[in-house]
Design a binder for these strands. Structure first.
Ligand SMILES: [Zn+2]
Ligand SMILES: [Zn+2]
Ligand SMILES: [Zn+2]
Ligand SMILES: [Zn+2]
Lengths: 126, 126
DNA sequence: CTTATATTTGCAACTTAGTTGTAATAACTA
DNA sequence: TAGTTATTACAACTAAGTTGCAAATATAAG
């Protein structure tokens, strides 16, 4: 796990991600762990884990940052990019294990992309 | 143009969008017009114009809101959705006139999606 | 043109996600 | 065990965006 030290903050945060299949927002993590870990630390550990390729992040429709486990546990490559889904009813936000074609753009260099889909999840469709 | 009144704020904002082909961020608009229009008014007029189908909006990689003219001048439909491109060198942000396939998701209802691409624009590729 | 009504505006104060600096603390190394 | 370096908490800050309200202005009615 790279240069990161095994501190209580790191282990508490990793536990949250190992206990769920979905993504977790910074807001949610501060709600859950804010009494045991300072929010600054939460933000900093999350970035470290992202740098280390343990987590990846994306912005939800509300502009809030979400994190999720990386399946491959390596730095996120452009080829790894997958869409994310946010449920408007229950708030569940998750990685979609689908490949999306990043359009070829003439005269432009594509470096990164984000595809986010909003709707009703499997549990919330009527 | 719906129920919106022809006020100076509306006309100044519309002029900005008619003078450019690219998208404009709220930040940029406040920078340009903040001395003539209060920022609260800028935010409120932008939402009105979006409700009216004159503009559409999306979030940039930084979480800042961007607005751009709608080509069709009708409420944004799911079929109208197009990707947006943000240049990391010059900051130019624009609509891409490309169709993206929104993947069919089993057991889920798709309501909205956003596809944003980051890279170097035609003027900034070396 | 004047008045009435409804929308829009500016202002100040607020909310909220996220960041910064720093001194103290804890993890790792030799 | 002692030294070095990374990590932490805390408080203060930044910045995008929102809210409530009284004053101003656009439009409609007379
Ligand atoms: Zn749901
Ligand atoms: Zn993901
Ligand atoms: Zn550029
Ligand atoms: Zn667009």
């Amino acid at each position: 796990m790279g240069i990161i030290r095994k501190t209580e903050s790191v282990e508490l945060l990793l536990k949250e991600f190992h206990d769920t299949e979905t993504a977790l927002s910074t807001i949610e993590l501060i709600k859950r762990l804010g009494k045991r870990i300072n929010k600054t630390t939460i933000y900093r550990v999350l970035s470290k884990l992202e740098e280390d390729g343990v987590l990846h992040s994306f912005l939800g429709f509300d502009g809030v940052k979400w994190f999720a486990r990386c399946k491959s546990h390596t730095q996120v490559q452009i080829s790894d990019i997958h869409p994310h889904f946010q449920c408007i009813s229950c708030g569940k936000t998750e990685c979609l294990d689908i490949k999306v074609d990043i359009p070829k753009l003439v005269n432009r260099e594509v470096l990164l992309s984000q595809f986010i889909i909003k709707g009703k999840c499997n549990l919330c469709v009527a």
